[in-house]
Design a binder for these strands. Sequence first.
DNA 1: ATGAAAGGTTCATGTTGTCAACTGTTCAGC
DNA 2: GCTGAACAGTTGACAACATGAACCTTTCAT
Lengths: 148, 148
Amino acid sequence: MEQASVPTADPITVEVVDLMARLVGLFHREYEEAAAARSLTGAQAKVLALLRRGPMPMRHIAQTLSCEPSNVTGIVDRLEGRGFVTRESDPQDRRVKLVVATDTGLSASSELRESLNFAREPLAALKASERAQLRDLLRRMLDSSARG
Amino acid sequence: MEQASVPTADPITVEVVDLMARLVGLFHREYEEAAAARSLTGAQAKVLALLRRGPMPMRHIAQTLSCEPSNVTGIVDRLEGRGFVTRESDPQDRRVKLVVATDTGLSASSELRESLNFAREPLAALKASERAQLRDLLRRMLDSSARG
DNA sequence: ATGAAAGGTTCATGTTGTCAACTGTTCAGC
DNA sequence: GCTGAACAGTTGACAACATGAACCTTTCAT
C-alpha cells in the first residue's frame, strides 16, 4: 500500500531487482539446506546467528526478525529444548528474558556460517577486485536502508 | 555436509556473504509485506510469479521452488480456490496437470511486481553507472551458478 | 500384456506465523 | 504508597507451509 509517489523505476533498477530476487532465492535455499544439515530450521538458525553477538531479549529478536513475539517464544522453546540456548531473566528488568546461546549453540552457528558456501561458488566467478567492488556497492545500499 | 574441500574463504568473500544475508532478509520481508498487502502469502506470490511466463506442470513448480510436490498441491489448491489459477491436464501426457494463471492472477502478480519497492530506495543510493556495475556483477554470479 | 517409473494427491506430523487474551513487572501521577 | 497504564513474555486457537509415506492413474519399456 501507500506508494503513490513511486516513480516508474528505470530499466536497470528493474533488472537489478530481478537479479536480486533470483539471488535471494538461491541464498535462501542454501541457507535452509545448510541449517537442515545440522538439523536446524532456517528460523532457528537465524536466531542462533543473532545470538552470536551476545544475549538478546525476546522482544529484540522479534523486532529484528520482524515477527510477533509469540512466534519467537516457540522458536526459542525448541532451541532451548535441544540445548542450543537458555533463557535468563534480566536483573535490570525482571520482565525481560535474555536469550543466551550455549557453547553448543554457538559452535553450531559458527559451523553453519562456515559452511555457507553460497556464493562462494558464484562469487568465485568474480575477480578479487570485482568482489571488492560488489562489497562496496552492497555496503552502500544497506547503509542507506539502515538509515531510511 | 560433505565440504572437506572448501577452502577457507577470503575475507572479502566472507563479508560479501554477510551483506547478502542482510540483503536477503530485507528483500524477504518486503516481498512478504507486498504479498500480504494483496492478501497473498509469499509462497503463493512466488508461484504466481512463476506462472507469468506461461502454464507450468506441478512437478516443475516444485523443482523450481525446491520443495516437495505435495507441498505445491496445497499452495495451488489455495490459489485455485481464490480464482488466481486453474489446473488443466496436459493433452500430451494425462498424468501432468498444467497450472495456468487466470487474468486475475496475472494482474495480481504484475501489481505486486510493480510495487516491489525493495531496493528501489536502497538502489537510489547508487549512481546510474554504479547500478549498471552492480547489475553486471550479479548477472555474472547468477550465470555461473546456473551452469554449476 | 506386464511391471516399473513418473506425476499428483492424500494423510499424518511438525514448524512457522498471526492474533487475542492473559500473567507479571515497571513506572508515572496522584 | 497506590493505582492504573504500558510493556515483556507466554498461552491457545488457528492457518499456511513443508516433509515423507502411501496411494491412484498414466505412461512406457520390455
